[in-house]
Simulated scan of single mutants.
Amino acid sequence: MKVLIVEDEILIAEQLQRMLKDIAPQVEVLDILHSVKTARRWFMQNAEPDLLFMDIQLSDGISFDLFNYFDIKCPIIFATAYDEYAIKAFKVNGIDYLLKPIDEEDLIRALEKFKALQKNATISNELLQSLVNHPSHQNRIYKEKLIVQHRNASLPIMLNDIDVFYLDQVIYVVTHDGQKYVAEQNTLDEIEDILNPLEFFRAGRRQIINQRAIESYKGDTSGKLYVKLKNQHVPEVEISREKAPVFKRWIDR
């Protein structure tokens, strides 16, 4: 079994490597990568591993940025000191979410889960659905409203009324009726963390779209997708070739 470790804390990465060697001697650690930049270079030059161990907050950014460039299909076990990313982790082939310091029994269970998936099926959309029952988020209640700026005043609007968020120096919010507002948040990552991933999709670095707003989508010969929204005030949304399979799984679950 070939494993890749993406972890910016050298001591933790080495400890994980030793634990894997003790627990599963058949594991071959292909490499230990310490940043988003080196991970991008690695995936450009190598085939995917059988299993990926990945920290989330790396020295030069968030490891989720990799999914903006690559359609990573191998199972991923996330290991992090933070529990607020579990929702996002299960959207991108995450099969387990371990909190640091990594407990040996938790690691064993995660590897057993990986082996069971290998035997029974590839990662399916059921994993996305299962995040609702994840221990870190059993009582998660998503926001229903968002505070936006409008004519020098703060205005609450329902999230269900929003068709798209997009970045253009600031975060703009476009509602079903074509109204455009400025969000109080500074980044799309902040927006994404308060949204239900079953309802909203991160189309790329600059856009998040509401599933209810989608009218149709089509592909081209390069593998990109073009999503048409019901809202005539919003132009077609482009989804990269790498992210197209993720979008298809999300919308077809």
Rank of each mutant, 00 (worst) to 15 (best):
P156G: 08
F67D: 07
I141R: 13
N196D: 15
S124T: 15
G223M: 00
L4G: 05
I251V: 14
K113Y: 06
V36A: 00
G219L: 07
T80C: 00
Q232A: 12
D103I: 04
T38Y: 03
R241C: 08
P135Q: 06
I95Q: 02
L146M: 15
D31Q: 06
R205M: 00
R205K: 11
E144G: 14
H150Y: 15
N125T: 10
D60E: 01
K228R: 12
L128H: 09
L128T: 12
K21T: 14
N196A: 11
I56A: 12
N68R: 11
H233Y: 12
Q26R: 10
A110I: 04
N186K: 15
K115I: 02
F165Y: 10
N231M: 08
I72W: 06
I251E: 10
F201Y: 15
I32W: 00
D83H: 06
Q15S: 14
L52C: 04
A86P: 03
S154A: 09
A244E: 07
P245G: 06
Q15M: 13
N133E: 13
I194T: 08
K100S: 00
L159E: 02
I208G: 10
V132W: 04
D103T: 03
P75E: 05
I141V: 15
Y217V: 01
R151F: 13
I147T: 15
S154H: 10
